[in-house]
Design a protein around this nucleic acid. Structure first.
Length: 281
DNA sequence: ATGCACTGTTAGCTTACGTCA
DNA sequence: ACTGACGTAAGCTAACAGTGC
């Protein structure tokens, strides 16, 4: 079994093309004149499906159109292939699906198949998917000219290219949302943990039973200086709340006195750095 | 009025897995 | 124990429909 995976933002785009597991019933070749192949139901799980590999060996591309590209372009320009330019049969006009069914009828579909009203879905070939992916990488939206050119190149209807790009944008956005959610979740977890830790620190500090004068004198450090040698924060000597004998110690001295000196000196930089770490993740 | 993009939904198809003879 | 057929659930994605700009 060969699986071709394409990663984009972690999005796995399965490009497996009718490759079956050994346990799966082997598909039979069904040469369909319809642009959409019609799986012939044998049972709830047995399905005759065209193998693109096998068909390609036979020179048959199930995704190829019965009409010419010129016809497709005319169709597109006439607006008949866009469901947005048509209204459902309920409101008087016919949907794309119905229009596609007409194409099927032109391909001499049997009454049995004709009776089957379920919409058919093609599978893009590996090459088609690759080209679409490459184009999407360059620009995730197409102007009408680009759409027509790409459709012509791929042998698809412009509407199909349009739909593919719509779905691709939706998948990209969904994946990005998932990634964003993961990031926010991690941020939340980290902040919760940080909050817990800080609460604990507050409790510990309160337990020190420091005098009210100590806190009256203590001011939160608004400017912190990082020691270049050890990258610890040095607290300004004035107004730190240490006793007079330690007022005028130098940075180096402070360094060797095992900073932080006051409670704010230990908490504030930690918060700053942790916060940064949280959002850097 | 028209066209396009976005969003949500539907349905066809594939794959993995479990069960049974 | 191994194998193949069968059923089922889950995931992917083409196609569709509705909506807003």
């Amino acid at each position: 079994m060969i699986m071709v995976e394409k990663e984009d933002l972690g999005l796995s785009l399965s490009l497996n093309l009718f490759q079956n597991t050994p346990k799966q019933p082997q598909p039979l070749n069904l040469i369909s004149s319809s642009p959409y192949f019609h799986p012939l139901k044998l049972s709830s799980q047995q399905t005759i499906t065209p193998s693109s590999d096998q068909n390609s060996k036979l020179g048959i591309d199930v995704n190829r159109l019965p009409c010419t590209v010129v016809e497709c372009e005319e169709e597109e320009e006439a607006g008949v292939s866009s469901p947005n330019s048509t209204v459902s049969s309920v409101s008087g006009k016919r949907s794309l699906r119905e229009l596609d069914h007409d194409v099927d009828n032109r391909g001499n579909i049997s009454d049995e198949e004709d009776a089957e009203t379920a919409r058919k879905k093609l599978r893009l070939s590996k090459d088609q998917s690759l080209i679409l992916e490459e184009t999407f990488k360059e620009h995730n939206t197409l102007n009408p000219k680009q759409k027509l050119a790409l459709a012509k190149q791929l042998g698809l209807r412009p509407r199909q290219v349009e739909v593919w790009f719509q779905n691709r944008r939706a998948r990209t956005k969904l994946k990005q949302t998932e990634v964003d959610c993961e990031v926010l979740k991690r941020c939340c977890e980290n902040l919760t943990e940080e909050n817990r830790r800080l609460q604990k620190e507050v409790q510990e500090l309160r337990a020190l039973k420091l005098s009210p004068q100590f806190y009256m004198q203590m001011t939160p450090p608004t400017t912190l200086t990082m020691c270049p040698s050890c990258e610890r924060v040095a607290v300004p000597s004035s107004g730190v709340g240490v006793d007079a004998s330690n007022r005028h110690i130098s940075m180096a001295q402070a360094h060797h006195r095992a900073l932080p000196i006051g409670p704010w000196a230990s908490v504030a930089p930690t918060i700053t750095h942790r916060m940064f770490d949280v959002f850097r993740q």
